[in-house]
Write a protein that binds this DNA or RNA. Structure first.
Lengths: 190, 190
DNA sequence: TGTCAAACATACGCTAGCGTATGGAGTAGG
DNA sequence: CCTACTCCATACGCTAGCGTATGTTTGACA
């Protein structure tokens, strides 16, 4: 009724999605400062005329990127922790997702966004939303392992802190054995 | 003999030191991208004519900053872990240094440099040097707590991973109690 | 088939920041 | 005193990237 042409309703977010995708790729490689309109346009082989039709400015792209990431992570953790299987196996599977060599891109995005969140309120809000859901879900898994509610929450914090912190250390300093030992200690039942 | 004037030898690193100091301050606040010559000059109330006398370019400042940080951290960990006192007390003291509210600046610098190290070889080398020494020293402390050499090393990795990783999580998600519980678990003897 | 709006292209002005070139103040030594 | 060197100021050119203004194409729809 409001729109005269159906084409206007066909896929309003599908074209801007390629910009968000390219932005996430740049974010993974070079941090937020690498998310720049003109370089992205070159990478996509289109011009920034397209960009400024879909987004008001660069900040809008970053916000859309944060929203996309936030929603995706929340949906993912709900799916990953909500299935069947023993809780310790599910935790181990979650830990595998942030091993250094698997899911490099996801890890890089994660770290870039958290770095940004230290000085950007909207990024901090996205991180808050994701962490809230993750700690809730993983806390429940630790609870299923036998920890009290408070200790399960502390274990969840320890769990995610380790995963992200480990990727900040020198890669060669973290041996496979050290990592396995650490994970085993984290997932040990009370 | 080589120099005709003694003034040339008076303090060759003392003037460039203020640039490094200002650069570290900017790094702590806004990451490497905030380490820019002209803004730093304004903050120091001098002109960039001074800068380009002391440094060949912006990269040289970043390298000097990395060297300064690296040397400082290595000297610090040797002093902090080499004194007297029970090993668990010394570990706890080390953990306090990276509590969120104490040593904010040091933590911010740490995270910014590690973020840079993901895409910068020289930053990665600085991180490698610091981590090598820290893990060695802290590994010895865990060894003194009764862990085997391999497990002590894994505990050291876990220790530092937690400290840095915790500061990446949403601040409100990490309660004081969760932190205390986690630290206690990390420092528990075998 | 002509119209209209979506989607992109083109061209422009503007600013921040890098690096250079050159000038000038201070100072120590001869 | 005057020379030479250190240290900083001033002024300039240059590029990358942001945002705007204005074409140009394409496809749906009456």
């Amino acid at each position: 009724m409001a729109r005269k042409h159906k084409a206007a309703q066909r896929s309003p977010r599908l074209d801007s999605a390629i910009w968000i995708e390219a932005a996430l790729e740049a974010l993974a490689n070079g941090g937020v400062e690498a998310v720049r309109v003109e370089p992205l346009a070159k990478a996509l082989a289109i011009t920034k005329g397209s960009f400024y039709w879909h987004f008001v400015d660069r900040r809008a792209l970053i916000d859309a990127m944060l929203a996309s990431w936030s929603q995706g992570r929340i949906a993912a953790i709900r799916q990953q922790s909500g299935g069947a299987g023993a809780p310790d196996m599910r935790l181990r599977h979650l830990a595998e997702l942030y091993t250094r060599h698997a899911n490099m891109r996801g890890l890089a995005i994660e770290l870039s966004i958290r770095a940004l969140a230290r000085s950007d309120a909207r990024a901090a809000e996205a991180v808050r939303a994701v962490d809230s859901e993750r700690l809730k879900q993983v806390g429940q898994l630790f609870g299923a392992l036998g920890w009290t509610a408070a200790d399960a929450q502390a274990r969840a914090v320890l769990f995610y802190s380790y995963l992200f912190g480990e990727s900040l250390l020198d890669a060669k300093a973290v041996t496979v054995r050290a990592r396995e030992t650490a994970i085993r200690a984290l997932l040990a039942p009370p």
